[in-house]
């Protein structure tokens, strides 16, 4: 593609002690595009999302937004550049209610005080748009089911109208119907012009929705595939390293 990618990685490496989670990763994500990053457990998927979201500083390499190198010192910096992530563990505060979690770190303020009415109204609108069923937005997140919590986490990401949405293992705890609903949601994100990056250790979930599939293996890029053309066997071979 000739367009400038919204976000790119160039030669990004990250180690945890002796363990090399990411080694010289190059990656581009464009607007109106869904990129799936697949790999076995421990391939470096969560670290990749960590670096892109500002939660994890790379040891080497660069993150580029619109072709210019940026320094993502923390998640707030990433979000200011339009990059928002739903983490695998969702990163919700269980003691806060749904509205409080949705707006955490970006609360609406009116006359110096929190504007609960505006936030609650927006919360219902967002959750309604995701067709998410939550008994009450004033319920602590601790009292919600796993799927409900995931809806809250995704709604939170959409709140700031980010250009890049990172979804780390979003389908891990979902049932079949919920996966279908989720994939529809991802398509909607692409239609709206978001650049979407999804990680998964399961191939079948994402091939239907992804434009491109990047395979990670032991921290390195081990192949990049056009989602329409790649065969299951090719992908599996790249993921496991076993020659066909």
């Amino acid at each position: 593609m000739s367009r400038t990618p919204v976000v790119s990685l160039r030669g990004v490496s990250r180690s945890f002690g002796a363990a090399r989670a990411l080694v010289g990763i190059d990656l581009d994500v464009h607007a109106h595009e869904v990129v799936a990053v697949v790999g076995d457990t421990g391939a470096g998927k969560s670290s990749l999302v960590g670096v892109l979201s500002g939660a994890l500083a790379p040891d080497e390499g660069q993150v580029l937004v619109d072709g210019a190198a940026v320094s993502l010192t923390d998640p707030a910096a990433a979000r200011a550049l339009g990059i928002a992530a739903v983490f695998q563990d969702l990163a919700l505060c269980a003691n806060l209610d749904v509205v409080e979690n949705l707006f955490l770190g970006q609360e609406t303020v009116r006359g110096g005080l929190l504007d609960e009415v505006a936030m609650e109204k927006e919360a219902w609108r967002l959750l309604g748009g995701l067709a998410a069923r939550v008994p009450s937005v004033r319920m602590p997140v601790a009292a919600l089911s796993g799927a409900q919590r995931r809806s809250v986490a995704i709604a939170r990401v959409l709140l700031g109208e980010p250009r890049v949405v990172l979804l780390d293992e979003p389908t891990a705890s979902l049932g079949l119907t919920q996966v279908a609903e989720f994939l529809t949601l991802v398509e909607r994100l692409r239609e709206r012009g978001h650049a979407v990056l999804i990680t998964s250790h399961s191939l079948s979930d994402l091939q239907a929705v992804a434009d491109r599939i990047v395979v990670l293996r032991l921290g390195r890029t081990n192949g990049e595939f056009d989602a329409d053309k790649a065969s299951y066997e090719d992908l599996l071979a790249a993921m496991t390293g076993v020659p066909r």
Partner: peptide, 25 residues
């Protein structure tokens, strides 16, 4: 209860890492 600071205090007390990733200083 009604300021961003207070909300941050409760968030950090509930789950500091989640609050950090949500952009709370």
């Amino acid at each position: 209860r009604r300021t961003r600071w207070g909300r941050s205090v409760r968030a950090v007390g509930g789950d500091a890492e989640a609050a950090r990733r949500a952009g709370v200083p």
